[in-house]
Amino acid sequence: MTDQLVAETLSRFRAKAAEAGVSSRDVELLISSFLPAVYPVGGDGPVVVHLGGNNPMLPVGADKPSEPFLCSIDCAQIPPNSTGLPLPADGHLLLFGDAEKFRQGPGPGYVVYIPAGTPTTEVPAPEPTRGSYAERDYRSVRVGPSWPSSGPDGFADPSDGSERNFEDYELLDELSDIWREAGGNYFGSDLYLGGHADFWNDDPVELVNGGEYVSGNDWCLLANWYCDDVVELPSPRMHWLIRRQDLADLRFDRVMISVDIYG
């Protein structure tokens, strides 16, 4: 995904929002809250993300994983600075998690980083409740804006600082539809890295930064997975969360995970 295509999408979004009578102030404030994200997709070339299966490649001598294997990400194939996160420049990042486990708030997650050149071997992981996740390869990525699930501070708020009302939320929904019409959803896929968390109830990043489940701040979204087709939960989303400094220090033992469902 080129910068030109992103710019063209944003230009269409601005034009369509203006046609709908939305103030340029609210449009620009919303755009300023977008975060960059990487969306793995099909295509040709080296495998960027391998999803599914039950025998991840782990360092020789590694313990058997405690969670089902979801995917392996080739960090060298992720464009530098494309997520706004300090991701490793090479090696593989492996995500684990059982999508059937609905968690009331973020809890300890399971992520493994394997530096480039590390000897590896297949290690069986626990099966998810409904069997191993279907295998597929993504051989390309799109880089584009990640839509915020809630409006930024000051968006559609009266100048007197009163609380946001129902009409304000309707405006966000309207702009979401306009974003889709402008081609913004072209950036999407069922798994993405960085960006905003997509959720139904509470923003998991806000929960961990706010200290309700974890003390401290500087938490961000590492990955978001739409796991609708592999679980019986209503419209589930799985999130992997990590502090930026822990990510830079490769402290993946400190990852948190959450599963959010509709309703």
Rank of each mutant, 00 (worst) to 15 (best):
Ala7Ser: 12
Glu8Phe: 01
Ser11Ala: 12
Lys16Thr: 14
Lys16Gln: 13
Ala17Ser: 09
Ala18Val: 15
Glu19Tyr: 09
Glu19Gly: 05
Gly21Arg: 10
Gly21Asp: 11
Arg25Gly: 07
Asp26Leu: 05
Asp26Thr: 08
Asp26Trp: 02
Val27Asn: 02
Leu29Cys: 05
Ser32Arg: 12
Ser33Cys: 04
Ala37Lys: 01
Ala37Thr: 08
Val38Gln: 05
Gly42Ala: 04
Gly45Ser: 07
Val49Thr: 11
Gly52Asp: 08
Gly52Tyr: 06
Gly52Pro: 02
Pro56His: 00
Gly61Glu: 15
Gly61Tyr: 05
Ala62Thr: 02
Ala62Met: 01
Asp63His: 12
Phe69Ile: 06
Leu70Ser: 07
Ser72Pro: 03
Ile73Thr: 15
Asp74Glu: 09
Asp74Thr: 11
Cys75Val: 04
Gln77Cys: 03
Gln77Phe: 03
Gln77Thr: 02
Ile78Tyr: 06
Pro79Cys: 05
Asn81Lys: 08
Gly84Met: 06
Asp90Met: 04
Leu94Ile: 11
Leu94Val: 06
Leu95Gly: 02
Phe96Leu: 06
Asp98Trp: 08
Asp98Cys: 12
Ala99Cys: 01
Glu100Asn: 07
Lys101Cys: 07
Arg103Trp: 02
Gly109Ile: 10
Val112Leu: 03
Tyr113Glu: 12
Tyr113Thr: 13
Ile114Pro: 07
Pro115Phe: 02
Pro115Met: 11
Ala116Gly: 03
Ala116Arg: 09
Ala125Gln: 13
Ala125Gly: 07
Ala125Phe: 14
Glu127Thr: 09
Glu127Arg: 05
Thr129Gly: 05
Arg130Ser: 03
Ser132Glu: 05
Ser132Val: 04
Ala134Ile: 02
Arg136Cys: 10
Ser140Thr: 08
Val141Ile: 15
Pro145Phe: 08
Ser146Arg: 07
Ser149Asn: 11
Ser149Glu: 04
Gly151Leu: 09
Asp157Trp: 14
Asp157Ser: 12
Glu167Pro: 01
Glu167Lys: 12
Asp168Lys: 14
Leu171Phe: 00
Asp173Phe: 15
Leu175Phe: 01
Ile178Thr: 05
Arg180Phe: 10
Asn185Ile: 04
Tyr186Phe: 10
Tyr186Lys: 10
Ser189Val: 10
Leu193Trp: 03
Gly194Cys: 08
Gly195Cys: 04
Gly195Tyr: 07
Gly195His: 10
Asn201Lys: 13
Asn201Tyr: 03
Asp202Ser: 13
Asp203Phe: 12
Val205Lys: 13
Val205Trp: 03
Glu212Ser: 15
Asn217Glu: 11
Trp219Lys: 06
Ala223Pro: 06
Asn224Lys: 06
Asn224His: 12
Cys227Asp: 11
Leu233His: 06
Arg237Gln: 11
Arg237Phe: 11
Leu241Pro: 03
Leu241Thr: 04
Ile242Met: 01
Arg243Leu: 07
Asp246Gln: 01
Leu247Arg: 09
Ala248Arg: 07
Asp249Trp: 03
Asp249Ile: 00
Arg251Pro: 05
Arg254Glu: 05
Met256Glu: 14
Met256Tyr: 15
Ile257Arg: 12
Asp260Ile: 07
Gly263Tyr: 02
